[in-house]
Amino acid sequence: MILTVRDLEVTFRVGPWFNRQPILAVAGVSFDVDAGETFALVGESGSGKTTLAHAINGLQDISRGEMAFMSQRIETSSPGEMKPLRRHMAMMFQDPVGSLSPRMKVGDLVVEPFRIHGIQANLQEEARRLLSLVGLSGDFSDRYPHQLSGGQARRVGVARAIALNPKLIIADEPTAGLDVSVQGEVLNLLNDLRERLGLAMIIITHNLHVVHHVADRMAVMYLGRIVEAGETEEMFRAPAHPYTATLLSANPEPDPDKARNRISLPAEVPSLLARPPGCEFHTRCPWAQARCARETPYTENGRKRHVACHTPLAPGARPPATRSIQ
């Protein structure tokens, strides 16, 4: 086990100073990532995916829970203790161009991790090696970030992430904003490096098609909680949580004649300031029953498949014609 996260909570305070209200952006999340494994965190905007990634990296203070990376506690580590840990834990941020300093050349950007961690190396040589690993020619060394396309900037981000041979890469929306013809290149590159260097990866995305092809295991988040987690293939074949089933059915596919057994959701995503009682998905769940509005479904948090639902779905279940509660 390279990373374990237990009952993690992140609280933000929002509102004017005289009326600060706490909101739970991450509300008790637990999961493990094994060495060499790709784990995907899936969910819609506001489900707490990015906040969770920042918390793992020590970029976000947490209000409760435990995290351990390579058997060392993250949340109790001081910044001085975090620094050597971060060598082994690389982050790829959402915006590929925005995460590169506009005043630095690509050749300097990819070896910046060496400078930060004070590691002696032949930097020019390393820059060449890293750029060739991500499939960029040496000419790129002298370019500035604004001279790169989205896909190239992504590659530079990957090169920075793998510079110090990390054990874990956290990639936040690695394909967002990329064209389909380029998106495959970045995913293939990550897959390839994972195999060659034995990296573990956490991929954060809302693109389920991407998850299907790259992740070994996945977790679906809703309002800051994991509602279902398990092996990717198993979850695609037989989603057990109604929200997972909805997300999978809402994935437009490039085939005009495909039968679309879509599950449509009534109502909007609830506000984090007013979490629904009981099961938090019951306000939108087509299968919701009276019990769901009262009792919080129990989940166990192990490596096995788990689902936070009172009545997990059978494979291929279709929603009832009318909801039994209003």
Binding site: V182, N188, H209, H212, H213, T232, E253, P254, D255
Partner: peptide
């Protein structure tokens, strides 16, 4: 190239 078009899982996605 669209990963949505491939129903079987692949580790190597086509690109242009």
């Amino acid at each position: 190239c669209d990963p949505a078009g491939q129903s079987t899982r692949t580790r190597h996605l086509p690109t242009i």
